[in-house]
Design a protein around this nucleic acid. Structure first.
Lengths: 205, 205
DNA sequence: ACAGCGAGGCGAGACGTTCCGTCTCGGCGT
DNA sequence: ACGCCGAGACGGAACGTCTCGCCTCGCTGT
C-alpha cells in the first residue's frame, strides 16, 4: 500500500466538514492567516482536533477547500449555470473592461480580501499549495479570458500571431501586481486604462 | 514620550548586527521562511535573543534589513555607482528586453529566490511589511523602468498620452505574476515576448 | 590625566504561554 | 461492532519577556 490508514470517506460527518470550513473562513478574517490556528478552528467548529488532522494535511489545505466552497457558492448565486462566461458583444474592449472591473470588485471585497491574500501568500512560499491554488481557484477564472481572447482573435480583433496566454497575462498581471503589492489604487478606472493600453500598445501609431 | 525605552543606537554592536543579518539570510535559504525562527537566528549568529528583539519588531523586519544589505552589496559589485540605470541605446525594445531579462535572472537565481519570495509573501499579508518592502526593495528597481519609459516618450517612441506608471506595470506585472504564481516558465523568451506584445499591443495594425 | 563609577548593550538561558501534531479515551451512529 | 466523533492530555518547539553577570563605554572628581 502506498497510503496507509486512509480514513473511510463514506463515514465522514458532513456536519463537521461544513462546520470546519465555515469556522476556518470566519477565523482567517478575524485574525489573519499567520495567527490562525488549527486549535482555534476546532474550538470554533465544535470539533476535535483529530477530525481536522484526519482529513487535511495543513491549515492551508483547509483554507483551500473552504475558499473553493465559497467560490462555488458565489458562482451559484450569480445566476444559474451559464454565469461564468465572458459575454461576447462584439466589442472586445467593453467586454474585457466589464470582467476586469468585476475582478477588481472581487479583489477589493472585504469578505474575500483576507482569505484570498492568505492563500496566495502561502502559495508563493509553498509550491505545492501554489499549484493547488492556481489550478483550483485561479485557473478557472483565467480560462474565461483565454476563450474570449481566442474568439476575438478569430474575429480579427486581436492580431493573429499573439499568444492568447501572453495577452491574458498582459491584462491580469498588472492587476494582480497592484493588488498583491499595493503599488497603486485598484479601481475601475485602472481596469479600463489597462484594457485600453494593452489593446493599443505603448508605441505610437 | 511616545516611544518608551528606545535603545541607544550609538552603543549598538556592529558585529552582532551583521552576524544577525547574515544568519537570517542563511537560514531562510536553508529552511524557508515559515520554519525560520528567531531562536535559530540568534543561535547561528552567536547572539542573545534579546539583542534581536531589542532592535527588530519581527522576523520580517530582520529579513527586510538583511535583504536590503544584500541588494546594496550586489549593486556595489555590479560596477561602481552608475550601475543602476537602464541603458538608453535609442532602441527601446532592446533596452527593455535587456533589463527584463536581468530581472528574470534575478528572480530565478537560487540565492535570491527563497528570501525574496518570503518577503513578498509576508508583504502580501501584512500591509505594513508590504509598504516597507515596496519602498525599500521594489520601488528603486521600478523607477529605472519609469525613467527609461519617460525618456522614450519624449523621444516619440512611446505614445504621448500613456501613463508611464501603467506602461511600467504592463511589463513588470505579467512577469511578477508568473514568478509568484508559477503559472508558466520564467524565461528570457518570455521577457522578450512581453516587451514586444506590450509595445505593439494586442489589436491588429 | 587618570582612576573610579554608573549606564546600557551584550551573550546566555530560564521562564510561562501558546500551539503543534499525536495519542487515548468514551460515546454514538451506521 | 466498527470507526468516526468530541474532548482533551501529552511532550516538544518556539514564542516573547525577564534576569543574570560581563564588558565597554563616557562622565566625573580628584
Amino acid at each position: 500500500m502506498v497510503d496507509k490508514a486512509v480514513p473511510d470517506a463514506t463515514r465522514r460527518s458532513q456536519r463537521s466538514h461544513r462546520a470546519i470550513l465555515d469556522a476556518a473562513l470566519e477565523l482567517v478574517g478575524e485574525m489573519g492567516y499567520p495567527r490562525l490556528t488549527i486549535e482555534a478552528i476546532a474550538a470554533r467548529a465544535g470539533v476535535g482536533k483529530q477530525t481536522i488532522y484526519r482529513w487535511w494535511p495543513s491549515k492551508a489545505a483547509v483554507l483551500l477547500d473552504a475558499f473553493e466552497v465559497l467560490g462555488e457558492r458565489a458562482a451559484r448565486e450569480a445566476g444559474g449555470d451559464a454565469a461564468s462566461e465572458i459575454p461576447d458583444t462584439g466589442d472586445l474592449a467593453a467586454d474585457l473592461k466589464r470582467v476586469l472591473r468585476a475582478t477588481v470588485d472581487e479583489l477589493t471585497s472585504p469578505a474575500y480580501d483576507l482569505p484570498i491574500r492568505a492563500l496566495t501568500a502561502e502559495g508563493v512560499i509553498n509550491a505545492e499549495v501554489g499549484a493547488e491554488f492556481v489550478s483550483r481557484i485561479l485557473e478557472p477564472g483565467l480560462r474565461l479570458y483565454a476563450t474570449r481572447l481566442t474568439a476575438a482573435q478569430e474575429a480579427g480583433q486581436v492580431a493573429a500571431d499573439i499568444d492568447p496566454r501572453i495577452a491574458l497575462e498582459l491584462l491580469v498581471g498588472p492587476l494582480t501586481h497592484r493588488w498583491l503589492l499595493r503599488t497603486g489604487p485598484l479601481t475601475h478606472a485602472y481596469a479600463d486604462a489597462l484594457v485600453e493600453t494593452a489593446l493599443r500598445g505603448l508605441s505610437p501609431r
